[in-house]
Amino acid sequence: MGGPGAGGLKGLEVTPLGRYLARRLLQFVPTLLGALFILHYLMTVGIQLNGDPARAVFGDRTPSQSQLQAMQRVFGTDDPCFEQAGNPCLTVFVHRLENMAQGDFGVDSRERPVVTLIAEHAPITARLALLAILIELLVGVTAGVLAGLRGGSFWDYVVKVSTTMLVAIPIFVVGAVTQLVLGVEFGSWLKGVGAPDLLTGLFSIAYRTDQPWASLVMPAFVLASLSLATTARLTRTSLMENLRGDYVRTATAKGLTRNRVVGVHALRNSLIPVITNLGISFGNLLAGAVVTEGIFNIRGIGGLVFGAVATGEAATVVSVVTILVLVYLLCNLIIDVLYAVLDPRIRLD
């Protein structure tokens, strides 16, 4: 924190928003440190209980002591504390923190910097999560409005059962079936009739580097299917509440058409909690995509962490998951601030 930063902070201190932001950001510190430590501890105990990941590299061939030591240096498991079950390896943790403070997030078992890994994996996942959120807004909100306009009606049940059904079928089955039907069958047919690239990209089986958006649409649908029910339910509930609100009655009394009342007044207000929820779920979408990313061969954050957990690459797991925690916290903060800006009834405090 140099001069200008301090000056900036000072400037902020006068406004309540600045004070609020400073306090919230300060709260991040213990949360992040806690997350770092918990993750570090879990990975450490994992290595202590389940064996040194460096040994697994050699497979069924027993390595010599020297070969094993060389590999342990690569994995960062050459500290003797990794042989004592329950030892939190605090020196390793402190060392990790020091490095992180200097921007060094460690390396994976191929000695590639974790920062590079994140730069490779994050953009794709961010696109995927963004598309998923758009799909939820489009499909989920439409379904929710359909259901909310007349609670208890036929459409209400259709929306409820169909969205819940998507939650009830395991996501890997939804993903595999989508890939088979839309990707393999329909996608091949499209290719056969010579459809344009964009169209075959939309129905491609695996992520395509030449179609960085289109080939993520189908996976985004699968990813969104998990929380479609929540979005639809939330829209329905809050729309129903708003439709009963005084201002709607007033608007109706003033003689506005029902479309206008619903579309302009009630819906706009109903969307606030929906968007809040989606904002919060952004972080979860980033990481919750492990399964979807695997099925559609998307090189994303979820898969990065999954692979790192499987091979026991502590530095990658600790850094990436902590960053996900940070993203989540930031999303929350942004939403809270926006909320206060949009809704004057809420005071930041």
């Binding site: 393999v184 491609s204 099925i295």
Partner: peptide, 16 residues
């Protein structure tokens, strides 16, 4: 490069 061999197989079927 594929993460899951099932995906690769589907891509082989589709000629990708």
């Amino acid at each position: 490069i594929y993460d899951k061999i099932e995906t690769a197989y589907n891509d082989l079927l589709a000629g990708n």
